[in-house]
Every structure is written in C-alpha cells, then in structure tokens.
Design a protein around this nucleic acid. Structure first.
Lengths: 146, 146
DNA sequence: TGGTAATAGTTGATTTTGTAACTAACAAGT
DNA sequence: ACTTGTTAGTTACAAAATCAACTATTACCA
C-alpha cells in the first residue's frame, strides 16, 4: 500500500488556480503571439499604456506586479517595434514617460477588442452571477495574504 | 483625451486568474524552493508519484498537462537527487516506470503537510462555502473550452 | 516479412526569465 | 558642498522554458 489517500492535488488551490489560469490564457495568448509576436509582459505593458495613457516603467510594474527587468525588456522590444515612444522627464531625468505610438494604439485597440470577445467566450461557461462572484474572490486572492 | 474607458484590465478573467494564481503560489513556492531546491515541475512530479504511486512520464504529463520535455527534465533532476527511481518496463521497453525512493517519499510527505497547512492558510481568506464554489468554477475553467 | 506510422522519452539550439550588480540621478541631513 | 541613502532603469550572466529534431521501440497492415 504505497498509495496516499490523504492529499488531493485537484483540490489544492494554487494548483487549481494555475491550471485554470493557464487554460484561460491559451486562446488569447495565441492571438497576441501569432498576430504581433508579443510576449505576456509585452501585451500587459501595451494594455496599461492603452488604458492609462502615459506611465513610467515603475508605475506599470507596480500596477501589474511585474519586476522591473521584465518591464524594461518588454518596453525595449515595444519601442524597437515602434509601438511605444519614450521621453525622458525634464523634472526628474531618471524617469522615462512611456506612451503608445499611433501603431501601438492601433495594436492596442485591435487586441483590446480581441480580449473583449475572448472574455465573452470564456464567460459563456459561467452565469453572470458566478462570474462576478469568481472575480471578487480572485481579486481577494490576488492581494498579499494578511 | 487619450484615456480609454472601454477596457478594464482588472476585470479581464485571464489576467485576474494569473494574478491570483501567482500570488497563491508564492508562499508554497518559497518552501519547496528553499527547502529542496525544486522547481514547479519537480514538485508536481513528486506529488503525482506520492499520490498515485507508480506512473510513467507520459501519464504524469497528461494528468498535469505539462509538456514531456519538462517532465523529462524534472524526472532527470529528481533521479539525480535520489528522490525518484526509474525502471524500464519489460513489456514495453520504451516506457519507464517511475517511483519515489524512500527519501523521495519523505520529501513528499513533508511537502504534502506543508501544502495542507498552506491551503488552510489560504482558505482562511474565504468561507468554506465560497472555497468550494471557487474550486468548482476553477475546475470548469481548467478544461478546454467547448 | 517488410515497410510505414505512431509512441516514449531525450537532446540541442534558441528564447525567455531570474538574480545580482551596475549606472545615473535625485534626496536628505549634516 | 559632502556624504549617505534611495530610486529609475539597464545590463550581464546564470537558470529555465520552448521548440524542433532525434533515437529507440512498438503497432499496424499489406
């Protein structure tokens, strides 16, 4: 009897969350990857700038909880592709203001529409009520434990 | 007016799921990493063997939805550390049966207890009812969309 | 039997991430 | 002004993930 009945992986919350997150990301990932050759950190930067307009790398990092080296490299690639424009601040010459270029804006609008459609498709698996409830719990779980 | 009010990242399910999954994994990750120098794919293999007893690499891969190269390398490292023992099948000499060694079993039992305690801690943020509901939805989201 | 396809698992090359150390600029107190 | 500390962002190197190609074995079937 080597079998262990005392632990069920499929009830372990971190595991379940990871499996669901991975599955839920697949379809959208395929699109931003195929269509724009973007990585996850890149569409996130793109979306932050699309939504909030003008941000510094640090601001994006703290909003998205992504490490600054990842942001740095994502911004690098996005500027290489002319999706993002950087401008040193006059007030504090350490910081760089980031903004979408017109083609960055176009890519954002395209992907944002895709994201909306994708979200709708995902939510067809859930009732509206369930989805709201789920989101509430995910938001709670997303903040550092007390 | 460059601000876009039409999309809210914090309501986008794949994003929310990822944030929650990452946060929920952090504490447990720290332990299996610090205590055993393991990667995520490694504790998953360890747990599968701890729970199910004897499996092939392919079986683990399909249960956990992990690519075979990741499994292969995880198994390699686990056998290097004498946590896992491999044995070629006599029936089909392509397949290898994987099993925990006694020290692998000990590591599993230790980490399994940690996982339980960690799960309890996480669930303190939720009522039992909510947690069950959440798990149900995560399981549904974990399967490929219809 | 012989030939083609399928499966289990590994390996190598490339890409991406993680970690730590680094530069440059500013802040605060003395 | 001068030291010390902090912050913004980059870079170098090591670790890990990805993807394709590979070996070895078995399955199918004419």
């Amino acid at each position: 009897m080597t079998q262990n009945q005392n632990f069920d992986l499929t009830e372990f919350l971190p595991y379940l969350l990871n499996q669901a997150a991975e599955e839920a990301s697949l379809g959208f990932q395929k699109i931003y990857k195929d269509r724009y050759g973007m990585l996850r950190s890149e569409w996130r930067v793109l979306f932050h700038l699309g939504i909030f307009g003008r941000l510094t790398a640090t601001e994006i990092g703290s909003k998205a909880k992504v490490h600054k080296t990842k942001i740095s490299r994502a911004v690098q690639r996005l500027t290489d592709r002319r999706f993002v424009k950087r401008a040193r601040s006059d007030v504090d010459r350490r910081v760089e203001w980031l903004e979408l270029t017109p083609s960055g804006q176009a890519a954002y609008e395209d992907l944002q529409a895709v994201a909306k459609a994708y979200e709708d498709k995902l939510r067809m698996q859930l009732t509206d009520e369930d989805a709201e409830f789920l989101k509430g719990m995910l938001k709670r779980l997303s903040m550092p434990a007390p």
